[in-house]
Simulated scan of single mutants.
Amino acid sequence: MTAKTILLLSDGRPGHYRQSEAIVLALSRRMETKIARIELIKPRIVPRRLARYAARWLPPRLVLAWLYGLTTTPKADLIVSAGGNTLAANIALSQLTGTPNVFTGTPRHVGGGKFSLVLTPYKSQASLPNSAYALKPCALDPDAFAAPKRWPAAPFRIAVFIGGPIPSADFQDADWLALGELMRTMARTYDVRFIVITSRRTPDAFYLALDPIVGRKDIVDRFIDHRQAGTGSIAEGYAADAIFATSDSMSMITEGVAARRPVIVLTPAVTKPFRDNEAVDSLAADKRLAVLPVREATPEQVAAKLATLEPMKENHLDRLADIVAAALTRR
């Protein structure tokens, strides 16, 4: 069978191009694939909204040359991209070559009609033209991990994925102290041990707040410190029986759900409305996760949530491949 060439358009942002890579990975479970990649360079002087209007009204060759400096149109069997800065190029290349195209994100000011498929984590947008609801694509393969124990099996391991403060989830010292106390009391109340995993955004305040417990093996089984090489792999977290994730990172939350683990999303006291709240609320409604304010959460509340959550049974990569394949068949 001849390999299908998938043209991946990247804006250089890991949070975007990794979603496209996940689509390629999902499709590779169904067919032989090879990737052609274009790193897009969009002039900063062009506002994103103007670029999107250009994709609607200007000739595609002009869009590619003017916005991205592209003068060639590579051939492919499928175009994939994520992120607003790739949107105009995705549309223009599809129009020029007749190639089906997939976009992950929100096609503001353009609409789904310019794509073969728009993947959205927001159920409110799944009914729009050529759109389908799915987890934000991620490359994590849950089949790589043994099935988790079900609460209240003992011993029980919980991975704690730590992000950092952002405007919509402003974690402060008191939130980190509350998290440390929650872990301490859970370890004392139940046969629970934690794997703590930090990230590039994790602030010094977290390390100071958790310092009294990270060295205690009766509480923290593993401490995977982003600041230090050789402390462990993030994959160890996805092999745990359940996951805590701070609410600032939709990527961590999505990967926890994709790993087929029950996920507890911990929120700070200071929050603001954010678009991804809709995606979190949908997953909560499906019992994939529960949301708890970290300063108010108790071991008993966490235990009750862990007992009622219903992790995914299917492999999200297979479902993603099915959604994309179905859209291409309809084209």
Rank of each mutant, 00 (worst) to 15 (best):
M1Q: 11
A3G: 08
K4R: 15
T5K: 13
L7R: 02
G15N: 03
S20H: 10
A22V: 01
V24S: 07
A26G: 01
T33D: 03
K34C: 06
I35L: 08
A36K: 15
P43F: 06
P47L: 10
R48W: 01
W57F: 15
P59N: 08
R61F: 04
R61K: 11
R61I: 03
V63R: 08
V63C: 14
T73L: 10
A76S: 15
D77V: 00
D77I: 01
L78T: 00
L93H: 09
T97Q: 06
G112T: 14
G113N: 10
V118D: 07
P121V: 12
A126I: 13
P129V: 08
P129T: 06
N130L: 09
S131K: 04
A134V: 07
A134D: 13
C138R: 04
A144K: 11
R150S: 14
P152R: 05
A154T: 15
P155T: 05
F156R: 00
I162V: 15
G164F: 01
P167C: 09
S168C: 12
D170Q: 14
G180N: 06
E181D: 15
T185E: 03
T189G: 00
F194Q: 03
R200H: 14
R201Y: 04
A209L: 06
A209I: 03
L210N: 02
R216A: 11
G232C: 11
G232M: 08
Y238N: 01
A239Y: 03
S249T: 06
I253F: 06
V257C: 11
V257M: 07
A258H: 11
R261Y: 02
V263C: 10
P273G: 09
S282H: 14
S282Q: 13
K287W: 08
R288D: 06
L289P: 05
A290V: 07
V291L: 05
P293G: 11
E296M: 12
A297V: 10
Q301D: 13
A303P: 10
A307G: 07
T308D: 13
L309G: 08
P311F: 04
K313Y: 02
E314Y: 12
N315P: 06
V324D: 02
A326F: 05
A327N: 09
L328P: 10
T329L: 14
